[in-house]
Simulated assay, not measured.
Amino acid sequence: MKQSVNSIFAFLFVVVMSFNALAQEGNLSMSRYQLGSGDRISINVFGQSDLSMEVRLPDVGTINYPFMGEVKLVGLTLGEVEQLIYEGLKGDYLVNPSVSVTIIDYRPFFIDGEVKRPGGYPYQPGLSVNKAAALAGGYTERAARDKITIVREKDGTSRSFTVRVSDMIQPGDIITVNQRFF
């Protein structure tokens, strides 16, 4: 009896640790999220309303920020943007600025091909290919669910790859649901 109780506790420990690892992996992937054109962010500097703003990143990827001029944000993570603004404000203007950057809206993803309503849709964290297709009205009768491709831009280069319906998408992805042949 005592051995089975220890086995149960060991099993539960492994399960809890597995969930913890998955949660941390999800947080790490979002902490590595690189900003792109179309993302809407909020920059807050505690106690400095004139330095706080909400802005949608333009195609060029730069914004005009007070006391710093043009600042390129596309390709940076939220932590990198916070550090960049902190360093830019620290010194002459503020002694120890408290900077916080959050995403208000992610850039949209696009889905085309064999879905009922192809087009651009707002990204939401946790979207799989299947959920994205559901937002687009579902698959058509001719959809090849095993032949779905995504074009994703990273670090200025685009790459295309085949995905499964359960794979997660990212903001800015272009999903193509190919047609199957009978």
Rank of each mutant, 00 (worst) to 15 (best):
G26R: 13
L57S: 14
V5K: 10
R107I: 12
G79S: 12
Y93P: 09
Q24M: 14
V101G: 09
L94P: 09
S18K: 00
D59H: 13
G79D: 09
P108F: 07
S52P: 03
A10G: 02
D39T: 11
G91T: 02
D39L: 10
V101R: 09
N6S: 01
M17T: 03
L78K: 11
D50H: 10
I111R: 08
P97R: 09
A21E: 04
V101T: 02
V45I: 08
R40Y: 09
A10N: 01
L84D: 05
E54I: 11
F46M: 05
V60R: 10
F13N: 01
L94Y: 07
S31Y: 03
G91R: 03
D105F: 08
V14A: 05
F67M: 06
E25T: 05
M53L: 15
I63P: 06
F9T: 03
N44Q: 15
S49V: 09
V14I: 14
D105K: 04
G79Y: 11
S52Y: 04
V45N: 05
Q83A: 14
I43G: 04
L94H: 13
D105I: 01
G38V: 00
V55F: 09
N27G: 03
P108H: 04
G36L: 04
D50N: 15
A21L: 14
L57A: 11
D112F: 15
V74D: 03
Q34H: 07
F9R: 00
L22I: 05
Y106F: 15
S52V: 02
P97L: 08
I41F: 08
N20C: 12
L57K: 09
R32S: 06
G75M: 10
S31R: 11
Q34G: 05
N20E: 11
V16Y: 02
P108D: 14
I8E: 04
D50C: 01
I85F: 06
V60P: 00
S100W: 01
K90A: 15
S7R: 03
G47F: 08
D112R: 08
P97E: 11
P97C: 07
V14E: 01
M53W: 02
V101E: 12
Q83K: 12
N20L: 13
L84Q: 15
D92A: 13
G47Y: 06
G47Q: 13
V55R: 09
F46Q: 07
Y65L: 05
V55C: 12
S100Y: 02
T62Y: 08
L78Q: 10
N20A: 11
L28E: 12
Y33G: 05
V14D: 00
L89I: 02
G36F: 08
F19P: 00
G38N: 02
M17H: 03
V99Y: 09
G79N: 14
G47L: 11
L94I: 13
E70P: 09
F46N: 03
G75T: 04
S29Y: 07
I43T: 01
Y93E: 04
M68Y: 00
V60F: 12
N27S: 08
K90L: 07
D39Q: 13
S52M: 01
N96L: 14
I43P: 06
E82R: 07
S31T: 04
Q83M: 13
M68R: 01
F110I: 00
K90M: 06
L12R: 00
I111F: 03
N20K: 02
V45L: 04
S100V: 13
G79E: 07
F109C: 02
A21G: 03
G47W: 07
S37K: 10
Q34T: 13
D105E: 12
I85Q: 06
S31D: 15
P97M: 10
Y93F: 15
L12V: 02
